[in-house]
Write a protein that binds this DNA or RNA. Structure first.
Lengths: 161, 161
DNA sequence: GGTATTTTACTCGGATAGTCTATGTCCGAGTGAGTCTGG
DNA sequence: CCAGACTCACTCGGACATAGACTATCCGAGTAAAATACC
């Protein structure tokens, strides 16, 4: 059970976009070259983010993407779910109901399977952790750890493309 | 990102085995028919559990599986990791190091990527939740919710096979 | 100089293809408990 | 009645088949800013 590599790309792109203002657009091409990933495929991830209303793109030359909301209002979970979907990591097929001694005519136990419940709790813990980290948080810690000159050069490089 | 269906099977099988004593063996065939899943494929899952030292099998007729430790000492995480492996759900490819303004000769930033750190924290929260649920806990809640006559009939059915 | 046209650089979305993983099947080898056979 | 051989039911592990998901790549359509041409 591994997350797609698109998830990593999407998060990094979102963090990058967090560093720009609402009147600045960054093109898919720039984001792809910046991160060293295939442009066409990254485009799919960005489309998914746009569909989830996290970023918005504009057409034509000097077009590109920007955040659709302020960075404080976008959580890691939003980004992950935009790429991976909102389905839970554990799917309960209710195999307990194949019990050979169970009368098939009797109505099924409608309670959620105890196993599934435990798995769902863990899933929720994972989501809770992701929900409380925002793009603003990430941008802040990147700002603390990365040389500010490098950051500025990156900004310019992205805008030029 | 979804867990394999083998995970569900493995957990249910472990819970079932928790209901038997150390001198009782349940065969793969019995477990497979009981849960309505393909015997040969379930066998792979049980082999993985055995390799992780959670259950142990014995050969020959009247052979089968039993728990390798007491149910209190086996957590859901043990079972999940036996099937899915211990790798984290998020793989950091360190795409930040493809930054075009970064001098390739300069030594790489050895700090863990901030994005990866946040993802790892969520991963750990998930594991923490799974670690604190044991097979004994699951067996207990099943015992509370399922008719005891049905449980007894299930026990006998499994031993007979 | 202002307007109309063309060029250009983007996004969007569908089509396609390759590779890997999950799922499932099949079978032969090894093992050991129970059964059978021969003395 | 007992020892040895046999049978059978089980696990183990490898080989194989298939389907679906993931990872791309390519291209045409649509769009709008910028550049150019024309009056």
């Amino acid at each position: 059970m591994e997350l797609r590599n698109q998830v990593e790309w999407a998060i990094h792109c979102c963090v990058v976009l967090s560093g720009f203002g609402p009147d600045e657009r960054i093109s898919t091409k720039a984001l792809a070259e910046f991160h060293g990933v295939p442009k066409e495929y990254l485009s799919k991830a960005l489309q998914a983010l746009a569909q989830a209303k996290l970023i918005e793109g504009s057409l034509g030359p000097s077009g590109g993407y920007r955040l659709a909301k302020v960075a404080e209002k976008i959580s890691l979970l939003d980004v992950v779910e935009a790429i991976e979907g909102k389905k839970r990591t554990f799917r309960c097929e209710d195999i307990r109901h194949n019990h050979p001694c169970l009368d098939p005519k009797a109505k099924r136990d409608r309670r959620i399977c105890d196993v599934a419940q435990a798995m769902y709790r863990a899933d929720e813990a994972w989501r809770r952790e992701l929900r409380q980290v925002t793009l603003a948080d990430l941008l802040k810690s990147v700002g603390q750890h990365v040389d500010s000159g490098l950051l500025e050069r990156g900004r310019e490089w992205l805008l030029r493309k």
